[in-house]
Design a protein around this nucleic acid. Sequence first.
DNA 1: TTCTTTAATCGTAATATTGCAATGAATAAA
DNA 2: TTTATTCATTGCAATATTACGATTAAAGAA
Lengths: 110, 110
Amino acid sequence: MGLTKTDSFTNKQNEMAAVMKALAHPARIAIVEHLLKVNNCVCGDIVDVLPLAQPTVSQHLKELKNAGIIKGEIEGTSICYCIDPDNWQKFQKTINALFSKYNIQKAKCC
Amino acid sequence: MGLTKTDSFTNKQNEMAAVMKALAHPARIAIVEHLLKVNNCVCGDIVDVLPLAQPTVSQHLKELKNAGIIKGEIEGTSICYCIDPDNWQKFQKTINALFSKYNIQKAKCC
DNA sequence: TTCTTTAATCGTAATATTGCAATGAATAAA
DNA sequence: TTTATTCATTGCAATATTACGATTAAAGAA
């Protein structure tokens, strides 16, 4: 069906999956990495850095924005994108909470 | 096109995206959480825990296995799945490397 | 052997994603 | 005003994902 049964899972599980999904594409990883590297806000030259057409990049930016990972502000004729500080730290904690649940001592695997 | 231009990105970016993609579904998050909770290996009762039909769960397990997140061993008539210890720690480091790149002091956002 | 159990695979339908050319909206420059 | 510039949106084609019924394969029990 191509339609996820979100109703059947908890909010946390759906939120976690949503963040992962937003980062589940090399172009979006590349965008985030670039924004992290430039550190202060950067405008639409993200398009120049990526090997994709402008509409495609715009689409990826939209998905990252919808997920709350980045935010953008109008600056004259161009738009300034940057990592959303609060959400970035929140997501880091969420993901770390999952990964750190692993107890390598107790976990006697097959 | 629905076809990701993987060639245009680095191996690291593609690998990172692949791990994220494997966890980009609430059912797969739920599977991982369950395996983390049970700690030692657990067999096909994952199907009982999830609100999905057996073939669907099997499909999700396959994707997690392909991504290297879990591994399975035949145990009589049933199969025992568990988190892959080495990869789990590797993925944690990879993701942490991305998230910790953020310098909240330097990052003067819009 | 036959029957049961467990889980993968096949086949299919519905929906989502990816990518881009073309277009549109908004501001700046001439 | 007209013309660029910058970026979002639209519309479309190609491919991927999600879900499940039906079937299959493998191992154990009867």
